[in-house]
Structures are given as structure tokens and as C-alpha cells.
Design a protein around this nucleic acid. Structure first.
Lengths: 192, 192
DNA sequence: TTGATTAAAGAATGAACGTTCTTTAAAAAT
DNA sequence: ATTTTTAAAGAACGTTCATTCTTTAATCAA
């Protein structure tokens, strides 16, 4: 009864994500998106609403795809320490080429102050990251890898805070080795 | 021989800084600046060049004024630990009302990837912050407050990384108490 | 095979963008 | 008092912005 869509919605979201990730929200124009997504202007509006709605969908897409990737990487590690360490490694390896940082951190800095809807999404994302860290710490305590003295709440936020710092510095640091040393020092709190 | 300027250049820069700090570079229009600076459009161009040049001057102004404020605060503290702690306190207290974060961190995230001139300025600012931290650590070692076992280079970067994390989270965190606990845990590495 | 439906394509909308032009006014040296 | 110089004021510039309109083409139920 109706014409078939010629583009894949997820693929289009992925392309939009790449652009927002590199350029940020304000610097990315609908023209940029039309060109890079390979989807007609009107189709973008028909499918995703407007620029802001598209960005919200990109954030949802980012959250899903990145957390899938990360959790896959964590499965390959055995010890709790290696899993937490992999959390940092993921940010660093996936960014060594471009230094794009993390879209959620970028968004927090660019938009959280004047866009409450987005601030809420950022908070939710941060909370979920902290949940992952918390559970890894708990796992480490359970198998006797980490001290039971460790305050899980604060340690979680401590590690998350360092992770955010790293994700910012990916955009400016020339020397990734130094960042790795920072990570190593951060995770020293986990030593028994 | 010529007409006198009716606005104060530094005051105008301060007003521009306020706007860029809250809104970011891309979101701040020349119209916004004209209104908030209270300076005529043409006068802004005659005095500061264009928007990009104005932003560079704002960054320089920020660096000077903030570092002056911080160093003043540090002087009032006696111990090396209290001085380093004050570095974090400064970020947190000056932002409790607005959650503006730090202009340099904001700029790093928004512009460093596609503006090399600004990336360079951000790096210089970060380097200077690390210099301050380094010297405080060294001072603490000299007066026997910190262990001489402490690797000054890495510890400096470790603390700076946590400071950047805090400055990001100021923009999203609802609970400042939690952030203070993160700071406290971070500075635990300084305990002998 | 026609008709209803929706996507694609391209052009066009008005508003907002950064920047510059022209005119008027003030200040100091002559 | 006049001239020179530069700031202030306001309008205007062309471009780019997000968004929408109109037209054409494809799909499938009837």
C-alpha cells in the first residue's frame, strides 16, 4: 500500500552519531547530517522528528551500542581487576585514532546546563556506568580479589570520576602513555 | 585627537567570558554578546577582531583571572594538603550556584578536536594547572608532609585527571556531597 | 490495473548567523 | 574654532541555519 523506505534507520542513526560525536550538537548542521547520513532532508524529519529529537535518538543508540561493545569486552576478561581495567582500555583504544572522547561526556559538557531533558539522559547514562562499576567491585569482593574494607559507593564514584577525566583528556592529550599511567595509579586503590 | 572609548575592555571581556562559559562557543551568538556585553557590535569587531579572536582573548582573560583567584585562596592555607584540597574546593564553591564547570575543560571538549589553535591553548592551561599541582606536591614532600616515595609526575597527572572529572560532573551532579567524597578519596593517595 | 499511501527529491521558507558599511558624535591637537 | 581621528549607532550585507512545501516515484491492497 505504501512505498518502502530505502535507508536503514539504524545505519542512519549510526552515521548521525558519528557526526554529533566528532562535531558536537551545535556545530552539526542539518546540512551536515543530510550529507553524511545519505538520507534526504525531508526523510530525516519524517523519520526522526527534528534535530533535537534526532539527537535524543542518537544518544539512545549510542548508549545501546557502546554498552553492548563494552560488556562484550568485559566478558573476555577473567579477574574483576581486568574487567574494570578494560573499561578504561575501551575508551582509550576506540579513541586512539580520533580522540573523540565519549559522546555522553561531550554532551554533558555542551548541553547539560541549558537542556534539562538531555541533562536527565546524561545522568541516567552516568548512573548506569556506575552500576557496572559497582557490580564489578562487588564481584571482586565476592571472589576475594578486592578487600571487603572497600567502600563500594565511594569507590565506584571515584573510579567513574577518573574515567570521565580520561575521556576528556583523550581530546587534548598527545601522550597516551601518561594517561595509561594515570589509570594504573587510579586502580591502585583496588590492591589489597 | 580622537574620541574616548566608552566601555572598559576588561569588563567587556569579563561579560563575554560569562556568556561563553555558560553557553559554550557555538551556542553563543554575536547578538548574545552585543546584548550581554553592552558594547556595540562594531565596537566589538574593532576592539577584539571577530568572534574567534574574541574567544581567544576571553580564554586569556579567564586564565589570568582564575589563576589569580586560585593562588590567592592557596595562600590562605598552611599545609600542602590543604592547598591541594583548596584547588578542588575552588572549583566546587564557585560553581555551586550555576554548575558552569571550568571554561578550559568545556572548551577542550567542545573545540579541541577541530580547532588546533584552541587545542594548543587548552594544553597550555592544563600544563600550568599541572605545574601548580606538581609544585604543591613537591612542597609537601620538602616539609615532610608527603612521602618521598610519591612519584610526582604521575601523582600530578592523577590529581589533575580527577580535577577534570569533577569539573565535568559539576554540570550534571545533583549531589555535591558525593563529589566531595570523591575528592576526599582521591587525595587519600597523599596520606603517608 | 487502478488507487491509496508514503517515501524520495528538490526547491523554498523565514529566521538567525557572523560580518561590514555608512552615518553621526565626541575628543583633542592645531 | 577648525580639523583630524576614532568611537558609537544603526542599518545592511550575504550566508547558513532549521524547517516545510510541492512534486515525483514506488509499493501493495483492492
Amino acid at each position: 500500500m505504501a512505498r518502502k523506505r530505502e535507508f536503514d534507520e539504524n545505519e542512519a542513526l549510526m552515521k548521525a552519531m558519528q557526526l554529533f560525536w566528532i562535531q558536537g550538537y551545535e556545530k552539526t548542521s542539518m546540512d551536515d547530517l543530510v550529507n553524511h547520513m545519505g538520507v534526504h532532508r525531508k526523510s530525516i524529519y519524517d523519520t526522526f522528528g527534528n534535530k533535537h529529537a534526532l539527537f535524543l535518538k542518537v544518544l539512545a543508540y549510542y548508549k545501546q551500542s557502546v554498552s553492548e561493545e563494552i560488556l562484550t569486552q568485559l566478558e573476555h576478561k577473567e579477574s574483576a581487576f581486568d574487567k574494570i581495567s578494560a573499561l578504561f582500555d575501551y575508551s582509550m583504544q576506540s579513541n586512539e585514532k580520533q580522540g573523540k572522547g565519549c559522546l555522553v561526556v561531550n554532551t554533558a559538557v555542551e548541553l547539560a546546563l541549558h537542556d534539562e531533558a538531555i541533562a536527565q539522559i546524561v545522568r541516567t547514562n552516568f548512573d548506569e556506568t556506575e552500576n557496572v562499576i559497582y557490580q564489578l567491585l562487588q564481584f571482586g569482593q565476592t571472589i576475594g580479589e578486592f578487600s571487603t574494607q572497600l567502600d563500594l559507593d565511594i569507590t565506584t564514584k571515584f573510579i567513574h570520576n577518573a574515567l570521565i577525566g580520561i575521556r576528556v583528556q583523550l581530546k587534548t592529550a598527545g601522550d597516551f602513555e601518561k594517561l595509561k599511567q594515570v589509570v594504573e595509579m587510579t586502580l591502585r586503590v583496588l590492591q589489597k
